[in-house]
Design a protein around this nucleic acid. Structure first.
Length: 685
DNA sequence: TTTTGAAGTCTCTCC
DNA sequence: GACTTCAAAA
């Protein structure tokens, strides 16, 4: 007989009775029932770290910790939701009260709530990376820097240096010296730009991603009373993917658990892949030092992959220097060895993947249980075309994001100036769209509005130069209309109004008009789901839709679709069958990383992450030739990725696809680009 | 002087 | 294929 479940209420989802010892291995059980104080869980790929965290949340709730006093920090909002749903099955719907999300989303929540006590108005606008770069550019231009001098850092570089400084807490001088020696001489100017950028953000009520963390930390550091309010919210903090946190985040965490030290972090130093964003796996290595008295639990039993796959990935990562050595093992004996597939060119690679996917599908593997992974978003272009032609449904994760497309940013800019009339970046963007208005006129208009204290009507009062008359009138009328509409009509309605003006601009300025208009339709659908402009804009900035599928409104879980994903976006996921394409030196590792030891090591870990996603089937493909796609040459001979060295290859099955209708090994000859006779003649001229 | 169109450059990963 | 740089047009 099952025992009465005292902790559930009638209105809540019923918890399943369970036997911890039977559901977890000893290490997992030890970690999930650990009592108080700092806990570090070193969890190799596929060792059930999510499961352990879920049980730990459940255990805390069961032992009397109020759910709302638990903070679960994850890498994506999706990950937090998944974990809390699983916890719900264990302890019921109280788990819904657990505070969960990304670091940035959590910082955002706290800043909206407590910011006003620290001089940050609650109605700030969040800038994404592109916006922040644009603002940096405005700072640079307003200081008159980089006009004449050659090789002054570009806005992207400036923003990178700034962001790196904030996230890694490395001095700007040191970053310049180590990463940008040619710019060391400009460090005064760069400092002035950063100062102006910081001031400008304040004046314009704008907040960048880094500020969400920075202000969070600053609130904890500068005002003891405020810090007590904030740290008092949570009695237990759990952090997933700790190897991908940066110095600033580690500092914030330390401050957040000054009072109780109930912090659990989970991670795998072998899977640290976000150094480009300031993350350092030093954090996980140093955790025991930062939190004296830390208990370390290591999870080594892999439940995901078959032995042959694990053998291969263990060998791949054995070459890396890691400090927490793990020996992953599995009970999943047997199974086929990973395939190492050499193909002539991209076309054959695509064909191989498609045919193998169809074969596995016919044998009963759902499309959604298969994934094609690649180093960078653009590498799947050929495959996407073929899948479309063959009417095979797919979902693409990562890569060039919907929100970064120019036309999306354009319409969002309209919403943003309605929400925050001081949003200089958005004003600038919109003004440049209008015929007859360029940089100079746009700056003059913005300066005039700033002089009018950013009154919402200031734009109408600005007198434009003759050429910009018409545009000024059009935009003024639109803004007046939107301001006149009642807010209750919704964000979708705002967008419809904006598009009455914007669609024509789009047709005029951009190519590929139809898909762009379709994107705007989708955006309108999403917007309909949000109560206010502010909520819509914040949500878009913090949790951008991961796949185009997410945008179609209701999530279509029923739809079976092959997953196409960058390796970064595949983190934390697993599939029955995984294909890694373009395993070629220069693509993976990317050529930019090949000169730097640390970057190369990160690429290796990235490949490790890719290959450890597979449960039963793993295939790595590498084209021997590529046409046109490579810089400079229109033809090149490629080499297998250096990470798949001899030791790794010996554990793999070499596969050469042969098709009846393809004449192998004769690849089509490239068009003539050189004339040997002519070269010889020149040599003796 | 400012805008706009065209040629030329480099192309990643994400909150 | 998007962004920057450069030269011609308004």
């Amino acid at each position: 007989m099952s025992d009465p479940r005292l902790y559930t209420r009638s209105s809540e989802v019923t918890a399943q009775p369970r036997n911890l010892a039977a559901e977890l291995n000893p290490e997992q059980a030890a970690a999930s029932t650990y009592k108080e104080g700092p806990l570090l869980i070193i969890a190799g790929a596929g060792t059930g770290k999510t499961r352990t965290l879920v049980y730990r949340v459940a255990h805390l709730i069961e032992t009397g910790v109020p759910a709302e006093r638990i903070l679960l920090l994850t890498f994506t909002r999706r990950a937090a939701q998944e974990m809390l749903q699983r916890a719900e099955r264990l302890v019921g719907s109280v788990s819904r009260r657990v505070a969960g999300g990304t670091f940035h989303a959590t910082g955002h929540r706290l800043l909206r709530r407590f910011g006003p006590s620290a001089g940050i108005p609650a109605d700030f606008t969040i800038m994404d990376q592109g916006d922040a770069e644009d603002l940096m550019q405005l700072s640079r231009a307003s200081l008159g820097l980089g006009d004449k001098k050659k090789r002054f850092p570009k806005k992207t570089t400036l923003h990178y240096i700034y962001s790196r400084h904030i996230n890694t807490e490395i001095a700007v001088d040191d970053i310049l010296r180590d990463e940008y020696p040619p710019f060391v001489d400009y460090r005064e100017d760069i400092g002035r730009i950063f100062a102006d950028y910081t001031r400008r953000k304040g004046d314009r009520n704008l907040v960048d991603y880094d500020d969400l963390l920075l202000f969070w930390g600053a609130m904890l550091d500068s005002d003891p009373a405020l810090a007590d309010r904030i740290t008092g919210l949570y009695s237990h903090i759990l952090v997933d993917e700790y190897q991908d946190t940066n110095m600033l985040q580690a500092r914030v965490l330390k401050a957040m658990c000054r009072a109780h030290r109930n912090i659990t972090v989970v991670g795998d130093d072998a899977q640290s892949i976000y150094a480009f964003r300031g993350a350092s796996f030093r954090n996980i290595l140093d955790f025991p030092r930062d939190f004296p008295g830390t208990t370390i639990v290591t999870l080594e039993q892999n439940y995901r992959s078959t032995q042959p796959i694990l053998d291969t990935t263990n060998t791949l990562i054995a070459r890396a220097e890691e400090r927490f050595t793990k020996n992953l093992w599995t009970r999943r004996e047997g199974g086929e060895r990973p395939w190492l597939v050499s193909v002539q060119d991209e076309g054959q690679q695509t064909r191989f993947v498609v045919e193998r996917v169809l074969e596995l599908h016919e044998n009963g593997t759902p499309l959604r249980e298969m994934a094609v992974l690649f180093r960078a978003g653009y590498m799947s272009a050929d495959l996407e075309i073929e899948l479309t032609n063959r009417k095979i449904p797919f979902e693409k994760w990562g890569g060039l994001k919907f929100l970064e497309a120019a036309h999306i940013k354009d319409v969002l800019a309209f919403l943003r100036i309605l929400e925050n009339p001081r949003d200089e970046v958005s004003w600038y963007r919109i003004l440049l769209l209008l015929p007859g208005i360029g940089e100079m006129t746009a700056r003059a208009a913005i300066a005039s509005m700033a002089d009018d204290a950013w009154d919402p009507r200031a734009f109408a009062q600005w007198s434009p130069p003759p050429r910009a008359r018409a545009a000024h009138g059009t935009l003024g009328a639109l803004l007046a209309q939107l301001a006149g509409d009642s807010a209750s009509e919704g964000v979708g309605h705002d967008l419809a109004r904006i598009r009455m003006v914007y669609d024509d601009i789009l047709r005029e300025r951009y190519d590929r008009v139809e898909p762009r208009l379709a994107d705007l339709d989708q955006l309108q659908v999403i917007a309909g789901g949000y109560p206010t402009r502010g909520a819509f804009l914040s949500a878009l900035a913090l949790e951008p839709p991961q796949a185009t599928q997410d945008l179609a409104g209701g999530t279509t879980d029923e739809d079976d679709a092959l997953i196409l994903s960058t390796v970064h976006s595949a983190k934390g996921k697993e599939w029955d069958a995984v294909f890694l394409i373009w395993a070629v030196d220069g693509f993976f590792p990317m050529s930019r990383a090949m000169n730097d030891e640390a970057e190369l090591e990160e690429e290796r870990r990235l490949m490790y992450v890719a290959l450890t996603r597979a449960r039963d089937h793993l295939a790595v493909t590498y084209p021997l030739n590529s046409y046109g796609s490579r810089r400079g040459a229109d033809y090149s001979i490629d080499q297998l990725s250096r990470f798949l060295d001899r030791g790794v290859r010996e554990l793999m099955e070499k596969v050469v696809p042969r098709w009846d209708d393809v004449a192998l090994p004769d690849a089509p000859l490239p068009a003539a680009t050189i004339d040997l006779r002519e070269l010889m003649r020149q040599r003796f001229k």
